[in-house]
């Protein structure tokens, strides 16, 4: 497979997952702001933006729901907002048009054509459910129409890495915001994990078990450990490990992050949650770089300069 195509597949996976996760995250946070009369809107919005790697305006500006929506949901120019990442996913699908199934292409393309313009805060919820629905369509088609060859491995590799990264960001909101921090119930809702969690723990909610569920549960597909494990198995599919061979850089990074969560006491993790979550994010980023270096090496870009003799 062409490196360029593989890279596009990897990014389709990441962008669609990013849109999905961001929609869940913002939706639940806004809902909480509405339902909790004691929430401090400005502080909660700031912590959300800082976790999502956005520049914060100075303290003299009040940030509200509309600003959060504009920056994280409706911005079309940056692939880290929902609209932007759906557009970017479609661009990548266009580049890989010949290897992806027509079903998949149409799902991604239809999403792009239906992308609504900026909506008011009132209709944000319907926008988010639409985004979630579209990304569910895309992942469903990926899982049901694509052979389990490298195409699928790259798509799912992107999806899993992004999922681990986004879940880590989400958990970081818990620690960063101090008194306005979303409680674990909110975080579980963001991941669509609330009902799975309730069934697992029979409704005996405790902060510790909730954290454990999102960090290290082996069965829930959005827990960090599960997502990292899935990424590892995709790398394994791309390049099966042989005897006597060391692991490559990407697998090392991912395995390290996974083991750092899996083989550590939960109480220790919780004590230093922001640090651990930052480490997971950095590992994902490093793994992403390593994957790019190994599988999608861009030829050194030649720059022509006006010669000075």
């Amino acid at each position: 497979m062409l490196s360029r195509i593989a890279e596009s597949l990897f990014w389709i996976g990441r962008y669609i997952e990013r849109a999905d996760d961001t929609a869940r995250l913002v939706d639940v946070h806004l809902q909480i702001l509405l339902e909790d009369p004691w929430a401090e809107e400005d502080a909660a919005c700031r912590s959300l933006l800082s976790v999502m790697d956005r520049d914060l305006p100075g303290p003299e500006v009040t940030i509200g729901r509309q600003e959060v929506l504009d920056l994280l949901a409706y911005d079309r120019d940056t692939p880290s907002a929902i609209a932007g990442s759906l557009i970017a996913a479609r661009e990548n699908a266009r580049r890989a048009r010949e290897v992806i199934s027509t079903d998949l292409w149409e799902a991604v393309n239809v999403t792009w054509t239906q992308l609504p313009a900026r909506l008011g805060a009132r209709r944000a919820h319907s926008y988010f459910s639409w985004v979630r629905e579209r990304s569910a369509v895309v992942s469903g088609i990926v899982d049901s129409t694509i052979s389990r060859d490298d195409t699928w491995h790259f798509l799912v590799l992107g999806r899993s890495l992004e999922r681990a990264d986004m879940t880590a960001r989400l958990l970081a909101t818990r620690a960063l915001a101090g008194s306005v921090a979303p409680d674990w119930r909110t975080l579980l809702h963001s991941c669509g994990a609330h009902e799975a969690y309730l069934r697992r723990y029979r409704g005996i909610a405790s902060d510790e078990s909730a954290a454990g569920f999102l960090l290290t549960d082996r069965l829930f597909p959005r827990s960090i450990v599960h997502a990292l494990g899935q990424a590892e198995s995709c790398l394994e599919g791309l390049d099966p490990l042989r005897d006597h061979a060391g692991v490559d850089e990407a697998r090392m990074r991912i395995g390290e992050a996974r083991a750092g969560l899996e083989y550590r006491r939960l109480s220790d993790l919780l004590d230093e949650l922001p640090e651990h979550m930052e480490r997971v994010q950095r590992s994902c980023s490093a793994a992403s770089d390593a994957i790019r270096a190994r599988y999608f090496p861009a030829g050194a870009v030649t720059t022509w300069m006006g010669g000075v003799r």
Binding site: R4, E7, S8, W11, R14, R18, R46, S47, S50, V51, M52, D53, L56, T78, P79, S80, A88, E91, N92, R95, D165, R169, A175, L176, G178, L273, P274, E278, Q281, R282, S285, S288, R292, A298
Partner: peptide, 17 residues
């Protein structure tokens, strides 16, 4: 935690984009 928002980890994007 009273940690100020730390240097957040940038979101990766496809350089091709």
């Amino acid at each position: 935690h009273t940690v100020a928002p730390q240097s957040s980890v940038p979101l990766d994007v496809n350089p091709d984009d």
